[in-house]
């Protein structure tokens, strides 16, 4: 896997989970283009950060749902990986066909999920 230099947007409202995800992504060679912990920031970044290869989105952020930001990314054609403690059941029907990773996840889980989403030859 050669993900060096590829850019990811991360949305996660729990600091410790975000720290862990940042470390995992850095070890996998990803570059964190931007990160948000609250919905307004997530929406702003979803429309403004350029050249995104993928977005990893926590579903519940600070009592709100991440879907307004996800919608912006979907319209831009950015692949989305949802992360949630509820697993696939945590997604409403209109988002069920998107990739999901259940919390807690390991580095290998993230690597596999991104490979499957983006194609193993990236």
């Amino acid at each position: 896997m050669t993900s060096a230099g590829r850019r990811v947007l991360v949305v996660e409202d729990e600091t410790l989970v975000l720290i862990n995800l940042e470390d995992i992504l850095e070890q996998l060679g990803w570059s964190i283009a931007a990160q948000a912990m609250r919905l307004p920031e997530a929406e702003r970044l979803a429309s403004s950060v350029e050249a995104l290869d993928v977005a990893i989105l926590d579903v519940n952020i600070g009592g709100a749902k991440v879907f307004p930001a996800a919608q912006i990314l979907r319209e831009r054609g950015v692949p989305i990986l949802f992360a949630t403690g509820y697993g696939r059941d945590g997604l409403p029907p209109e988002w069920q066909d998107h990739a999901v990773i259940a919390k807690p996840y390991s580095q290998a889980d993230i690597e596999r999920a991104l490979d499957r989403l983006l194609g193993a030859d990236v």
């Binding site: 410790l16 989970v17 862990n20 509820y86 945590g90 996840y105």
Partner: peptide, 24 residues
């Protein structure tokens, strides 16, 4: 039950992060 499940999963994710930060 959903709420409890969500809370447990989030707490485990937090503990996982604490463990890996501490060990590194």
């Amino acid at each position: 039950i959903d709420e409890l499940n969500h809370r447990v999963k989030n707490t485990l994710a937090t503990v996982q992060s604490i463990a890996s930060q501490t060990l590194r």
